[in-house]
Design a protein around this nucleic acid. Structure first.
Lengths: 364, 364
DNA sequence: TCCATTTTTGCAATCGGTTTCATTACGGAC
DNA sequence: GTCCGTAATGAAACCGATTGCAAAAATGGA
């Protein structure tokens, strides 16, 4: 292992038994050995200033030799912000958020930022704590995804905390109701419903039901509205009994389908609010001895891994995570760096057709 | 919104159109208004020094009034380390890692640390970059989970980078081969296999097969070894055709089961290397018209959400994520703070019995 | 009341970068 | 060779905390 041999004293200490600590190399160490000032080394690091090529090379050589990495803390301190983007999600264990997080991580990486993930786990108190954490870390921007806001907006302390943050850094939200001061990057839920409905209607379906989702979640609300609109456009009667609201999990889908199967006329196609609910729907259908898609076609939202784990593979709406992540982080970075970004942006989803709606289609 | 009114100049600027930036409050601002020195405020913050109660109260009141949060960057800079624990996983989109991450986040939170998550995505180059990121952030400790190490250990640059890090901060690894200098927190894979095998043998199974997993992944290797050992203990002949190595996904499980179904004597129970593979196994079984568990019992590892999404619900090994996370973070924190921790620790897994092995057992 | 202790305090240095500003070096024009 | 404008460089201040050290204040004992 290489070490800096120009520092005579105390570069190693044994304060933790068994673990040797190596003193970190600083810009001054490099400067000294290169025979230049720290300012010059800094200029080499930030690259943009004009440094005489020969010196630049010499300094760079030492940087490489000692594998010197500038201290992000010092850097952040001197320009009063860390290059960290805080991301707050309800729960990364939900694959939907996991996908977005990874997409954001990749996008941030190429922009020279780091992402800091926090799970609110749906608890107001945690969400507030995370906000404090972000504040302490002096993050450059915050991305907030999903989660119900009902309880939050009624908590004055929370509102105060968000305002304070919004006042000092760009906040990008998605799938939330708040945000007068925020940037919004949303998935085009209406377009998503369009894609699914047109696909099913093209296949000849006229009895199309919805399973799961709540009116108080903005994206679901939009889907419901669009659903009715599309029916009207196609002159198909809206049947209230075909719109089963509920949660977002397996159970919700299963229960919804059980109710749908009790209708006088059973639907020929069901759109579930997400892949989990779709799985519930599918299991319910199969338990009753119906075939998918011959008797009932099923489609979902999110296009998570689950969609290709079930049988038949599930037709789903892909939220274009890569694009989504890029837009979220891109908006954050542009806003941080003082550029112009539009306040609201939409991501166009894509329909992934699989066997659960088209028997002849091969599962990917 | 509250603001600091004692600072006459430039506390607000309009450099980003439409977004007002508020200058951050510092320890000096508090000190000035309280009529004390910054050192005293710092002592109030860190709590441990002796400050006259009346002053302490006065300062605390101002801290609350302005919702002052000390700058973590400055703090980290002055004690040369940020209170951040870096966590590197292959991919959080894998629910197994997502569970561990959330558990670590919770454990870290109560210890006053922040966790920084990085996905290596199985690429050596990314893993190395994340290491640099950790170094720049001057993290206090690193937790590395899973991932294949074959390519990594052969890359001298990578080894160098890890050594450098290991030399300066505690590194906790799990599910990896390296680690002479590291702390290890492992799940007791042998015990896990014991639990599954004993459960199945108790149920009367004698023809038990394994599906998926590779010899070069340490945890799988241990499972294979233990499997043979247990068979021997119970005087059951080991049949090579019952041990189908492969990957860790749906496909691997499916293919393994297809091969198992071609055996002269079809196994009566199958243990899949994880829940994904188990799902593949189950689907293969059901496609061939067999019933689970009446004809063939199935069990998996990881006890992810998937286990209760499939039908019948899957018997699986629960890795006790909460305990696991606590041990990982606990080890990191103790090591950072100079305490004694044992180099190797084991987490005892737990068997979750569900309908895929016991028909009469109700799914939870 | 006065001196010796023990607590409280504040000053100033430090952590490791960036950046402003003044100074110096350089290259070309005359 | 001199002069001038630009490019290159370094000294020093600054970001916002912590902390060792010394001074000041409070306390207690005689």
């Amino acid at each position: 292992m290489k070490k800096n041999d120009f520092s005579g004293m105390g570069e190693r200490s044994m304060d933790t038994p068994g673990i040797m600590k190596t003193r970190n190399i600083t810009i001054y160490d490099i400067a000294r050995e290169a025979g230049v000032s720290a300012a010059t080394v800094s200029r080499v690091l930030t690259n943009n200033a004009n440094v005489r090529p020969e010196k630049k090379q010499k300094v760079q050589a030492l940087i490489d030799k000692y594998n010197f990495k500038p201290n992000a803390l010092a850097k952040g301190l001197s320009d009063t912000r860390s290059k960290i983007i805080g991301i707050m999600v309800a729960d990364v264990r939900n694959p939907f958020y996991a996908e977005i997080f990874v997409a954001c991580e990749l996008a941030a990486e190429s922009a020279g930022y780091t992402v800091l993930l926090c799970n609110s786990l749906g608890e107001t108190s945690r969400e507030q704590k995370q906000l404090e954490l972000f504040h302490e870390q002096r993050i450059s921007a915050m991305i907030q995804l999903g989660g119900r806001v009902d309880d939050l907006v009624s908590d004055p302390d929370y509102v105060e905390a968000v305002n304070q943050l919004t006042n000092s850094i760009p906040v990008i939200v998605s799938g939330r109701l708040d945000g007068t001061l925020c940037y919004q990057v949303e998935i085009d839920s209406m377009k998503a419903m369009d894609l699914l409905m047109e696909h099913l209607i093209d296949l000849g379906h006229r009895r199309i039901a919805l399973a799961g989702g709540r009116q108080d979640v903005i994206s679901s609300f939009q889907k419901f509205q669009r659903y009715k609109q599309i029916l009207k456009n196609y002159r198909i009667d809206f049947r209230p009994e075909y719109m089963i609201e509920g949660g977002y999990d397996y159970q919700a889908g299963h229960e919804a389908m059980e109710r749908l199967l009790k209708c006088d006329e059973i639907p020929t196609a069901v759109i579930a609010i997400n892949d989990y609910a779709a799985l519930g729907v599918m299991n319910s259908i199969q338990e009753h001895g119906y075939r998918i898609p011959q008797d009932i076609a099923v489609a979902g939202y999110d296009n998570t891994q689950l969609a290709t784990l079930v049988h038949p593979h599930l037709t789903s709406i892909d939220y274009q995570y890569e694009t989504f992540g890029k837009m979220l982080v891109g908006t954050a970075v542009t806003a941080v760096e003082g550029g112009e970004v539009s306040r609201i942006q939409l991501v166009t989803p894509k329909l992934m057709i699989r066997a659960s709606t088209m028997p002849e289609e091969n599962a990917e």
